Simulated assay, not measured.
Amino acid sequence: MIQAFIKNSVERLSGDQVWLERSADFSRLAEFVHSVRPRATTTPLVRIGKPGDGGYLLPEDMEGMKILISPGVSTEVSFDSEMSKRGLHSFMADASVDGPPVDDPNFHFFKKFVDVHEDNVNMRLDSLCQKVPPELDGDRILQMDIEGAEYRVLLDLSEENLKKFRIMVIEFHHLTRLFGEWQMQIISATFRKLLRHHYVVHIHPNNVAPPTQRGGVSIPPVMEFTFHRKDRTALIESGKCLIPNPLDADNLPYRPAVVLPECWR
């Protein structure tokens, strides 16, 4: 019995600890990958932010918006700076730095990590959304890179605030954990929630590491997903997304490029 469990399990490493996790059912994994494939829509994409890490592809549907919710700052704010030039106020949160690397009157910084609880160093994404003053309220953009906390944070996000995001750009980490049964349940639940109101319109693999392939499924460990709210665009049923997009750029120019595997297209 234990030998069968080990045979059908995958090894996971966390710090110095190794444990075994039952492997995901590959038919269900393939269904998940198919469900999050980017959809071709009538709204063209534009690149915001610098070439390389910190720049993202978004639908050109930002007219009238004033708010960018931006958890995860570090030292890269070219995306936020370009949004500021478009008139958007950026509400930032990151406890790992004392503030954004440049001054901008449209930057509103909170020295806290975004997570699923509230204390001296953490705040929920709903709480960050509530920092927006009423006179600026309306449709918003979410740009989030929080190093693996995104799954629990998004599952914790209220439906009300989720539906206010016209556009979302989220970097998802640890995606090779989809090969494990329990982790796949968490990741797939996160995407099911997002796909209730949004289409995936673009995927860009971060070339920090190459894809891992098992059972005919190839998974880059880190990928940037762009979402567009369904009421803001229309699908091109006979069309196919252009991937890679000519506007894409490698996150790390000194590492080999990573092309989105065919199973994700």
Results as ranks from 00 to 15, higher is better:
1 M>V: 11
1 M>N: 04
2 I>E: 13
4 A>D: 12
4 A>M: 09
5 F>K: 12
6 I>F: 08
11 E>A: 04
18 V>Q: 13
23 S>E: 13
23 S>Y: 04
23 S>I: 08
24 A>E: 14
27 S>P: 04
28 R>Y: 14
28 R>W: 10
32 F>P: 05
35 S>L: 09
36 V>A: 09
38 P>I: 01
41 T>D: 03
45 L>C: 04
47 R>D: 01
48 I>D: 00
49 G>V: 03
50 K>W: 00
53 D>N: 03
55 G>Q: 01
55 G>A: 02
57 L>P: 02
60 E>L: 12
61 D>I: 02
63 E>R: 13
64 G>R: 06
64 G>P: 10
71 P>I: 00
71 P>L: 02
72 G>W: 01
74 S>N: 06
74 S>V: 02
74 S>E: 06
75 T>M: 08
75 T>V: 13
76 E>K: 00
78 S>E: 06
78 S>Q: 05
79 F>Y: 12
81 S>C: 09
81 S>H: 12
81 S>V: 10
82 E>Q: 14
83 M>Y: 12
84 S>V: 05
85 K>L: 12
86 R>L: 15
89 H>L: 07
92 M>V: 02
92 M>Q: 11
94 D>A: 11
96 S>T: 15
98 D>G: 15
99 G>H: 06
100 P>G: 13
100 P>Y: 11
101 P>E: 13
101 P>Q: 12
102 V>C: 15
108 H>Q: 12
110 F>M: 07
111 K>I: 06
112 K>Y: 13
114 V>E: 10
114 V>I: 07
115 D>E: 10
117 H>S: 11
118 E>V: 13
119 D>A: 13
122 N>D: 09
122 N>P: 06
125 L>W: 08
127 S>H: 13
130 Q>C: 11
131 K>D: 07
131 K>S: 10
133 P>K: 07
133 P>D: 13
134 P>K: 05
134 P>W: 03
137 D>I: 05
139 D>G: 14
139 D>R: 10
142 L>H: 06
142 L>W: 06
148 G>E: 07
152 R>G: 05
155 L>D: 08
162 L>M: 15
164 K>E: 10
167 I>G: 06
168 M>H: 05
170 I>P: 09
171 E>F: 05
171 E>Y: 07
172 F>K: 02
174 H>D: 12
180 G>S: 15
182 W>N: 14
188 S>Q: 10
189 A>L: 14
190 T>V: 04
191 F>T: 01
193 K>C: 07
196 R>I: 05
201 V>Y: 01
204 H>F: 03
207 N>E: 03
209 A>I: 04
210 P>E: 12
211 P>N: 07
215 G>V: 07
222 V>N: 09
224 E>S: 05
224 E>Y: 01
226 T>C: 09
226 T>R: 03
229 R>W: 03
229 R>I: 04
231 D>M: 03
232 R>T: 07
233 T>M: 04
233 T>K: 03
237 E>Q: 06
237 E>N: 04
242 L>I: 09
242 L>F: 00
243 I>P: 00
243 I>Q: 00
244 P>A: 01
245 N>W: 01
249 A>H: 00
249 A>Q: 01
255 R>L: 15
256 P>T: 09
256 P>Y: 10
264 W>G: 01
265 R>M: 06
265 R>E: 04
